[in-house]
């Protein structure tokens, strides 16, 4: 299938990419910088619950945690709470007196296997309910069939609906098969108007990895060089340890620079990560290694 666009996605050197990511985990980050990095990572989290069993109580609990991650430590709040569309109103209400955004997944999340009409309706509903951000999924089947224009048009249509509402485009990289495909899908999403590109739904076992994220960060960098537009990045799923989160921050800093080191340009889609960050912060404060028994489950 030929590329119907006015851009060409470069081929990806897989070995080089993996070796490059390994370098990011060798940086030595000590004490003060570490505390700063932990706090920064916490402020970048999209605290997420996307389960069929989500209840109003669960979402309210999550929002309480988003507003006050720890009882007595002075730590930043998370960036957003990410829920299904029918929980947006609950989250919005629970977060009413805070700056924390409400993100909603939409477009027949997680499979995206529905008509464009239904997907548009899904997005409209989420926005009417009060969502500040929309996390859409691309049609992976169409992409793999080579219908790149369809994927592009779909993203562009949803972006039109979103207007000022920030749009994150989930590529579900675990289903795309190769780094070349991930780069092409990233380029399509960037050119179609995404405000963020996001790795995964978190619903399949293959979620965010550092090489995949680096591949997408490089797409963002090239798009910035070409257009001057700074698009955000959100790795999601599988990032549950503070140490790994810090490696990601190093990667962002060394690939895109300081301008991306804030929660308007970089997010972590996670839920367990928050507790590990809090445990490490508490360790820095008390000097004692911590136990998850003393941190809330949600």
């Amino acid at each position: 299938m030929t590329n119907p666009f006015d851009f060409v996605s470069p081929p990806i050197d897989q070995i080089g990419l993996i070796e490059r990511t390994q370098k990011f985990s060798t940086r030595s980050i000590k004490n003060d910088s570490k505390v700063q990095a932990l706090k920064l990572a916490l402020s970048m989290i999209d605290l997420t619950t996307l389960e069929g069993k989500d209840t109003i109580g669960k979402v309210q609990q999550l929002c309480a945690k988003a507003k006050k991650p720890h009882d007595f430590m002075d730590v930043p709040t998370v960036a957003a709470v990410c829920v299904y569309p029918n929980m947006v109103r609950v989250a919005k209400q629970a977060l009413s007196k805070s700056n924390i955004k409400v993100a909603s997944v939409a477009t027949a999340f997680p499979s995206g296997m529905s008509s464009l009409k239904v997907k548009k309706e899904d997005v409209r509903y989420a926005i009417e309910e009060g969502a500040d951000e929309i996390d859409m999924v691309i049609s992976r089947g169409k992409f793999l069939q080579g219908e790149y224009s369809y994927v592009f048009e779909e993203i562009a249509t949803i972006k039109e609906l979103c207007k000022e509402v920030s749009l994150k485009v989930i590529l579900e990289t675990g289903e795309l098969g190769s780094l070349d495909n991930i780069r092409l899908a990233s380029d399509i999403a960037l050119h179609a108007g995404a405000d963020f590109i996001k790795t995964s739904t978190g619903k399949i076992s293959s979620a965010a990895t550092m090489p995949i994220t680096l591949c997408m960060l490089e797409a963002i960098r090239d798009y910035y060089k070409k257009t001057g537009l700074k698009i955000g990045m959100k790795p999601a799923g599988g990032i549950s340890e503070a140490k790994l989160a810090i490696h990601y921050l190093v990667m962002v800093k060394e690939t895109l620079g300081q301008d991306w080191l804030n929660n308007s340009k970089f997010r972590f889609g996670a839920s367990r990560l928050a507790n590990d960050l809090l445990m490490q912060l508490r360790k820095q404060e008390t000097g004692f290694y911590q136990s998850s028994n003393y941190f809330s489950n949600d």
Binding site: G287, F288, Y289, Q290, S291, S292, N293, Y294
Partner: peptide
């Protein structure tokens, strides 16, 4: 001291 203080 770490054996004695680890919270877990």
């Amino acid at each position: 001291s770490h054996f004695a203080s680890h919270m877990d």
